[in-house]
Design a protein around this nucleic acid. Structure first.
Length: 176
DNA sequence: GCCAACGTTGGC
DNA sequence: GCCAACGTTGGC
């Protein structure tokens, strides 16, 4: 299993929006960078875990854990002339851009802030791409060691996970 | 195929 | 709003 970090701007689509989405699942659409595209298309596997990272906002940081529930398929927004992600140069026969589906597994509360991550940037998180200046990749791989280091910053995860699955059940039963 | 100009990203 | 970093574009 692989670990990832996926960036999203909470003003556009944040952890709250994901928590409210049907099945707490979303297509990761709109990636228009070839390096990130290649990872989504070639390397993302069902069952991989990713941190949901809030960027370009007041408190940048890791806001949750998501699970890859569907592997790469053509990003539908590239064919939608009304979408801001529309790409006139892409065809259905040879799609240029790909999405995966991710499902919210648990929130991380409070958010693990970028400042907090930076406390480890000279040791355990030395290689972490999101900490490097000018990193613009919206999707980056993490090592298992980096994943463990970040998860360990919120030792209360076990209890909050239980509380959340209860909350999730309540939400679902309200809908049905 | 080089490279300057330009646009976007994202932390601060 | 600033600015550094970096990908993309387009002229040559």
């Amino acid at each position: 299993m692989q670990y990832w970090l996926m960036k999203s701007e909470p003003d556009v689509f944040g952890i709250d929006a994901l928590a409210r989405a049907p099945r707490r699942t979303t297509g990761w659409e709109g990636v228009r960078n070839y390096q990130a595209r290649n990872m989504l298309r070639d390397d993302f596997r069902k069952g991989d875990r990713a941190f949901f990272y809030h960027s370009s906002c007041e408190v940048p940081g890791v806001a949750g854990v998501v699970k890859v529930v569907r592997e790469a398929y053509p990003d539908p927004t590239q064919f939608d002339a009304k979408s801001e992600y529309y790409d006139a140069g892409s065809t259905r026969e040879a799609p240029r851009w790909f999405s995966v589906d991710v499902q919210l597994e648990r929130r991380i509360e409070p958010v693990i802030t970028l400042l907090e991550l930076r406390e480890h940037e000279t040791s355990a998180l030395r290689e972490m791409l999101v900490l490097k200046r000018g990193n613009r990749l919206s999707v980056t791989p993490l090592t298992a060691a980096e994943w463990r280091c970040i998860v360990a910053l919120r030792p209360s995860v076990a209890s909050s996970r239980a509380a959340q699955s209860t909350a999730g059940l309540r939400t679902r039963s309200k809908k049905s």
